[in-house]
């Protein structure tokens, strides 16, 4: 039904590459905003949820907004908007720099989340077919597994502590910090042991036993991919020209 859902992960990688590059090159707030809006639209069409993405990234967003505000305040060039005595608190250029930073990073984050609308296996296969060495692709894949492993391990330990009577909701911040500090080492060691076991499991199943590797799955470029790549090229080149 929705053509965008059938997009090859390689087309998405291409889009992310082009748009992120443009986001770094463009200075104008208008063009950056256009990139952001279009990326949101593509994300939505590919089956991702813009709002969901923002919600998941809310902590990072707070951080970005914070940095943007700090950046605005510490920029002293431009026409002052707010001054206290002779100190310029906020200038128009500062606001511009803050917004620029915010939108630029949002473009990169939103366009990258387009990649996540492909399944893990499609993405892996896409990278492999882009001739990225499979050692590297699997390394990324395992890194992606390692973080949840670490999180699970951590949660298990926290639950164990809660079962033994520590109420994490009630104890103060300082005590919580101490508790976490004690958890950190065993959790890390455990996760490392687990990932070592995982590496051995991969090895006994022939990972890197041969120089080459066959591929059961194969991604094929379709017309929609061609259309998508060409339109994103026209779109970005257009922006570059009228800039």
């Amino acid at each position: 039904m929705n053509l965008f859902r059938r997009l090859d992960p390689r087309s998405k990688i291409f889009y992310v590459g082009v748009v992120s590059t443009a986001a770094v090159v463009f200075d104008s707030l208008v063009y950056l905003s256009i990139l952001l809006v279009v990326s949101f639209a593509v994300l939505y069409l590919c089956g991702g949820s813009g709002i969901g993405t923002l919600y998941r990234l809310r902590k990072i967003l707070y951080l970005l907004v914070g940095i943007a505000i700090v950046q605005s305040i510490f920029t002293s060039e431009g026409t002052p908007i707010i001054t206290i005595g002779s100190i310029r608190i906020l200038t128009d250029y500062g606001v511009f720099r803050g917004l620029q930073f915010l939108i630029r990073l949002s473009v990169i984050i939103v366009s990258s989340s387009i990649l996540l609308t492909s399944t893990n296996r499609d993405l892996t296969q896409g990278l492999l077919q882009l001739k990225i060495p499979y050692e590297i692709v699997f390394m990324l894949l395992i890194a992606g597994k390692f973080l949840p492993l670490l999180r699970d391990e951590f949660n298990n330990k926290v639950i164990a502590m809660e079962l033994s009577g520590v109420d994490f909701k009630k104890i103060g911040f300082k005590k919580k910090l101490t508790a976490y500090k004690y958890l950190l080492l065993p959790v890390t060691v455990n996760s490392l042991l687990k990932s070592k076991e995982m590496a051995i499991s991969m090895e006994v199943r022939g990972f890197r036993a041969m120089d080459r590797r066959s591929s059961y799955r194969e991604l094929k470029f379709e017309k929609i991919d061609l259309a998508f790549i060409i339109s994103s090229m026209i779109f970005i080149t257009g922006l570059f020209i009228i800039r």
């Binding site: 991969m202 199943r205 022939g206 036993a209 041969m210 590797r213 066959s214 591929s215």
Partner: peptide, 10 residues
Amino acid sequence: FGAENLCIEK
């Protein structure tokens, strides 16, 4: 995974 590592045909 293992079959691909051994370069077995599709």
